[in-house]
Amino acid sequence: MTAKQDKAKLDKPKSVILVVAGVIVKQGRYLLTQRFEHASQGGLWEFPGGKVEAGETDEQALERELQEELAIETTTGQFLADSVFDYGDKVIHLKGYLSHWVSGELVLHSHQDARWVGRDEINGYTLCPADYPIVDALKRLPNN
């Protein structure tokens, strides 16, 4: 690549990808999932979710993604927080929602591990950077 091509690449604005995440609560514990090692942010923990597709509401996207990734049915509750984070190769606008487990047995289609943790245990995991504002919002909620 020439210096001119390098500069053009740097000057090009990155597209922002809208992603939703579910802070899934079940019996007072929250689900954290671990990204595959070979994926972007590999090995880090996150609140599961995915991209919002054209024509979907955040709630529709979140419930679809959790069904596809984890084989569970949830209902989307209260908005918690959002963050915009530049991961270098892409910019993510992450919106976190409290999600309530309805049914299903957890199957990991898109993650290498999953853990149900108490709110006070979340800090023991290294999360994707965009997830930390959601953790902060969760900690401000009254116990649920």
Rank of each mutant, 00 (worst) to 15 (best):
Y30F: 15
E65T: 01
P48G: 10
L62S: 01
F36V: 10
Q78G: 14
G77K: 04
Q67P: 02
R35A: 10
L70I: 10
Q78C: 13
E65G: 02
T76Q: 10
T74K: 05
G77A: 14
Q41E: 14
T57D: 02
I24T: 09
G22F: 02
A21Y: 01
K26H: 13
A71S: 14
E56C: 05
E46S: 14
L66W: 00
L31C: 06
Q27H: 13
L70R: 01
H38I: 08
V25D: 09
V25E: 12
V25N: 08
Q34I: 06
D86S: 08
E68I: 12
E68V: 12
T57E: 02
E68S: 08
Q34M: 12
H38M: 06
F47S: 02
H38C: 12
V84G: 11
Q60F: 00
Y30G: 06
A54N: 09
V23R: 00
L66R: 01
E56K: 02
G55S: 04
D82C: 11
L32F: 11
A81P: 13
L32W: 02
I72V: 12
R64C: 04
L80E: 07
V52L: 05
R64T: 03
Q78K: 14
L70A: 07
A54I: 04
G50R: 03
R35T: 05
A39K: 10
F36P: 06
L32Q: 03
D58F: 06
E68G: 05
I24G: 01
A71W: 09
G22E: 02
